[in-house]
Amino acid sequence: MQQGEGSETQVTWEDQQNINKFGRLNNRFHELEDEIKVAKEANESLEDASNELILSDEDMVRFQIGEVFAHMPREEVEGRLEKMKEDASKELERLEEEKESVLAQMAELKKILYGKFNDSINLEED
């Protein structure tokens, strides 16, 4: 209808839904960054633990289960650590994949929204 100011582009329900979706993805993106940080730390701790285990020459090691340190033969601990490492790296992989997909979807929405609203909309982080 009116033009020239750029501020009067009609916002449809579809646009609103896209903006909502973008907001949700952006939120998820930040959550994922935190989760990935935690998962990386977990991976590193496990790696450290198994390195220490290789260096130590004790047959019985104390392994934390729940709140207590159980005395366990080192082979068993090795096995458990391997399993934990495997799970932790799978989890990290899953999170990284989700992050990629979130970023791709955000880029797609940016294209649509900037295409319609130009500089009347700002989708960048402050």
Binding site: Q2, E5, E8, Q16, I19, N20, N27
Partner: peptide, 25 residues
Amino acid sequence: LRDQVTITQVTGARVYNWDVHQSRL
């Protein structure tokens, strides 16, 4: 909840823009 926040924010911005536009006209 966040969707509702976004809708409310967008509505606010649109009301504001509309007002600016009207006074320019």
